[in-house]
Design a protein around this nucleic acid. Sequence first.
DNA 1: ACTAAACATGTATACATTGACATGATTCGT
DNA 2: ACGAATCATGTCAATGTATACATGTTTAGT
Lengths: 185, 185
Amino acid sequence: MRALKYAILGLLIKRPMTGYEIAKEFSYELAEFWYANHSQIYPELKKLTSEGHVVFNIEISGDILEAKRYTITDKGIKDFTQWILKDENLQRTPKDIFRLRMYFSNNLEVGSRIHLLENQRLQHVNRLNTLKKIFEQYLEVPSASSDRFGDFLVLRGAIMREENYIAWIDECIMYSKENPQTSPK
Amino acid sequence: MRALKYAILGLLIKRPMTGYEIAKEFSYELAEFWYANHSQIYPELKKLTSEGHVVFNIEISGDILEAKRYTITDKGIKDFTQWILKDENLQRTPKDIFRLRMYFSNNLEVGSRIHLLENQRLQHVNRLNTLKKIFEQYLEVPSASSDRFGDFLVLRGAIMREENYIAWIDECIMYSKENPQTSPK
DNA sequence: ACTAAACATGTATACATTGACATGATTCGT
DNA sequence: ACGAATCATGTCAATGTATACATGTTTAGT
């Protein structure tokens, strides 16, 4: 499947980048649906180079500090274009440890269950607020052909996802309070 | 972290099960937020046995077909109880290939983009309908102490998640139609 | 002059996960 | 009696991912 390959190629279509810059991209908006740290990125870039999907040239900062700036090749663009066009079956639903906890939550007394839910809620609210702040920077919907359109869509998706998760937690809290039990299990 | 360990222990608290039965559980509701196939489950059960978290006894069907029925030990219950009680920081947002595609969707012409979105939409609608049919079986909210309460919460969560994903896709379709471009990139 | 943060690239080890390979028994329908 | 579906358990190789190890430079602030 090699999704990381296409994530990197997609970034390099926008502009040539170093491995370090690619890693940074993954820690901004992109992290809302994809992530890789540098220990995965550098080997992948090496592989992409040997496959002819990218080429690099070395830039020097200061006296000796080298950075490899990678550019996507025609072969890379062609491969990426085929990938992005391809219909795809639904992935398996992503794993979610908190949902796993809630699935087994009958093993908890009401107090503990609600504590866990409130804690999780707070974290999602914080994330939501961060996302909303980033979203405020878009004063209008970017043109569908600009590469900021993709950023806009996934950021909107991330906000909706967080709002929905919070709504689910609220339902869980409500049901737990409505329906108290004396002792667990 | 060993989430699979706790997923298995949680199931075994409900009742003793064979590896085969555990694998089956992962392909029903549980698959909405966790999954493992038998090639992961059997080794994990072996490990849990050697750690003293579970024990098994062999059942024979017919003449010779052996099945190992695993039972959780006191040590296993204690370990699970500590785990379920523990507060947890948010996981990294799960990877989502379709969102990755949409992030790079400025490389597509409007027609292709909408085709991909419609295709994905259909698949989510199908999944949603399946989930709703399962949900109809709950004529009332199960008691918070019954082990069907967890099933109920995560099933409700899965329905909300699918509805929300479809709403996001609809927004993407709307923005793509509102904001057409002549040629990609 | 010093220092902290950011720039920059790599490797290694362990763990998690997938899909294929491998084998065979039992049950249910026709 | 036959065949298909289900029951049942395991290993292996490849891939993917996380965390730590490892090293050194440059820049911006004080």
